Amino acid sequence: MEKQAKCVVVTGFGPFGEHAVNASWVAVQELEKLGLGDRVDLHVYEVPVEYQTVQRLIPDLWIKHRPQFIIHVGVSGMASSITLEKCGHNKGYLRLDNSQFCPDTQCCVEGGPECLQSFIDMDVVCKRASSAGLDVQFTVSTDAGRYLCDFTYYRSLYESHGKSVFIHVPPLGKPYTAAQLGRALQTILQVILDMLEQSEDQINCDHNH
């Protein structure tokens, strides 16, 4: 029996601050060109760097696509490798966004837990992606930065009960090209899909015994 194509949503961010070209959106567009084969129905979105838009858009994406999971990609001026974020944080949002707005409460979801973790084991993803033989470095982090990246990740984790992943990429050329970033995202997605298939097979196997 052929497995049905899985729906996956991938987002990147639009320009902000000194990032006139946002490496995250460039990387996502490269991923879209590369594709993920027949097994994935891939949808990509560019997200404006605005708290209020994120609050509205993330729940909409979950309702519209009902994806297996969503991967959010953001740029970090401090990153020099592909960084897999383990968790999103609810509080501490003080920086103004592109529309000079900041949540009054400095918080993402009123009454939500302080920290939410992804359902995917990022340490395993990092290890498997690193062994794929790409000319890029992968690392793991527990601090997505308390700006729109962290805010988006938390909102998505909250909405999806953990079925979200956040990846930080360095700015273009520091050190990686757009093509390298696209391939890195493709590899991470393939690793995650393989992990999910393995756990599904395990569940089916357990049911059959």
Rank of each mutant, 00 (worst) to 15 (best):
H207N: 01
S76N: 02
V169F: 05
Q202M: 01
R95H: 11
A23E: 06
S80V: 15
G17V: 12
H19L: 14
V124P: 02
D206C: 00
I167R: 03
L181V: 13
D135S: 06
F69T: 07
G133S: 09
E159T: 15
L34G: 11
A178C: 12
G37T: 04
F138C: 04
D201R: 01
C108W: 04
L84F: 03
F119N: 11
N22C: 09
E85K: 09
C107G: 02
Y51T: 00
C205I: 01
V44K: 15
H207L: 00
G182V: 14
S24P: 15
A144V: 09
L34Q: 12
H161M: 03
F151C: 01
I70A: 10
E197D: 00
K86M: 13
E200S: 03
Y154D: 02
K127A: 09
G92H: 13
C7D: 05
L34S: 10
R56F: 14
R155V: 08
Q137N: 10
S81W: 06
S76M: 08
D150I: 05
C107N: 07
S99D: 14
Q137E: 13
R66W: 02
F138S: 06
Y158C: 03
S80E: 14
D121Q: 14
H72N: 09
L172V: 07
Y147R: 11
H207D: 04
L181M: 08
Q106K: 11
Y45D: 03
F151A: 05
G37M: 04
V165I: 10
A144L: 08
Q55G: 08
G145R: 14
Y93D: 06
M1W: 01
Y45F: 15
D206L: 02
D123G: 03
C149N: 06
L61E: 09
G74A: 05
F151E: 05
A178R: 00
V21A: 10
I71G: 10
M1V: 10
S118H: 13
E200T: 05
H209P: 00
E159P: 04
F101C: 05
T53K: 13
A23M: 00
I120H: 02
V40Q: 07
T177G: 14
V165E: 02
N90T: 07
T11E: 03
V44P: 01
P103H: 11
L148T: 10
A179S: 15
V125P: 03
P170G: 04
E32L: 13
I82N: 06
C115N: 08
L189V: 09
P113C: 01
A23I: 06
S130H: 05
V47Y: 12
K3Q: 03
D143V: 15
P113F: 00
V40G: 14
I71R: 12
T177L: 07
S118T: 15
I70F: 07
C126D: 10
K6T: 11
R146D: 04
A79F: 05
P103C: 12
I82F: 02
L181H: 05
D143G: 08
K3G: 06
H43K: 13
G12M: 03
A179K: 03
P170S: 01
L61W: 08
T177H: 05
G35A: 04
